[in-house]
Amino acid sequence: MNWGLLVAIWLALLVYLIWACFRLLSRGEKKELLVFGCWLFLLGIFISINVHSKASDLRFAELFLQLFR
């Protein structure tokens, strides 16, 4: 597991979220911010899983096919 890369990814996503907070809240778009935050969080999880699985050269397709074979 490459912890350095994971921390860097989550930090980048956090900075992006803070920037989006300022931008969206200045227009009063709270619902958009909520959807934005959830989407960003799910994207972070997806990237983290794949960064982890890349170490064993697995991707979504391989993981999925292994689960259901």
Partner: peptide, 15 residues
């Protein structure tokens, strides 16, 4: 976010 999702989704879905 769409662009990021498509980029990572497209790259990570399979080898």
């Amino acid at each position: 976010l769409l662009a990021l999702s498509l980029f990572f989704g497209g790259n990570f879905i399979g080898n």
